[in-house]
Design a protein around this nucleic acid. Structure first.
Lengths: 113, 113
DNA sequence: GGTGATTTCTACACGCTGTAGTAATGGTGT
DNA sequence: ACACCATTACTACAGCGTGTAGAAATCACC
C-alpha cells in the first residue's frame, strides 16, 4: 500500500536514522537539498496520512517520528509482496536461492530455533 | 522499479496464468471488463516498455507473453525490497517470525541442502 | 496586542495510468 | 495491383500521486 516518492523516502530515511523525533525544520536542515519548510511540512503530512509517521501535536514545533522502524517496515513490504505471490512456498524456495550464502546460513541458524 | 497499475496487474495475471502467448484480442476477451482493444494494446505496450512482457512482432496478430514467471517476478520484488533494507539480516530475522509455521518448516528443509 | 515562528490551506506542474479515437499499416482475395 | 478488413501505432485527455512552495491562519511570547 505504501509506495513512496523520492522525497518521501528521503524523509523516512532521516526519521529512521534519528534516535529522537524531529521538527520540520530539523528535517529540512538534514536534507541535502534546499527546500522550503512548507514543502517538508507537506511531505510530513502526507506521510502521516499514510501512517508512516506519527506527529506530536502537543509541542511547538510539532515533532515527527516514524511509526515503525525501517526493519519493521521492510518486513511489512516483504509480506505485502508475498501476498501477491500465488504459490508462496515456490517463491520462498526460489528466493533463498538468490540470497548470499552468509544470509542463508544466518537463516538456517534462526530457523534451528 | 516495476510498480503496476490495476489494469496492468490484471493483464500480467492473465499472461502469467496462460500457458501460451496471447494476442491483444485474447487478452481483451479474458478480462472481465469491456475494454477497447486499443486500450489493451496501450497497456501491453507499456508493459513491454517495462520489460514485463515480450512481444512476437513476426506474427499477425502480435502475440504477448510474460518475460518472467509470476514467481520469478515476485522474487525480484522481494529482492528489490530487501535492497532498501539497511540491515538485511535483521530484516530476515524478523521476517521469518512473521510467516506461518508450515512455511518456516519448508524453508528449514530447503536450507538443509 | 503585536511580532516572529510555525502550521494549514491552496495551487500548480509533471509523470503515470486508464481509457479510447483516429490514423497508418499489412495481409488477402480477386 | 487494388481494395478491404484486421491489426497496430500514434495522439489525446482526465484523474491521481508527488514535489514544490506561496499565502493565509495560528500560536506563543514580550
Amino acid at each position: 500500500m505504501a509506495t513512496l516518492g523520492g522525497l518521501e523516502r528521503s524523509v523516512m530515511s532521516l526519521l529512521w536514522d534519528s534516535a529522537e523525533s524531529l521538527s520540520a525544520n530539523d528535517v529540512r536542515d538534514r536534507l541535502g537539498e534546499d527546500l522550503a519548510v512548507t514543502t517538508v511540512l507537506t511531505v510530513l503530512s502526507r506521510l502521516e496520512r499514510k501512517e508512516m509517521v506519527r506527529r506530536e501535536r502537543s509541542t511547538r514545533p510539532h515533532r515527527y517520528s516514524a511509526t515503525a522502524s525501517r526493519e519493521e517496515h521492510t518486513v511489512e513490504m516483504l509480506n505485502e509482496v508475498l501476498g501477491t505471490a500465488g504459490d508462496r512456498e515456490a517463491v520462498l524456495a526460489r528466493f533463498i536461492g538468490t540470497i548470499p550464502d552468509s544470509e542463508a546460513a544466518a537463516l538456517r541458524r534462526l530457523l534451528q530455533n
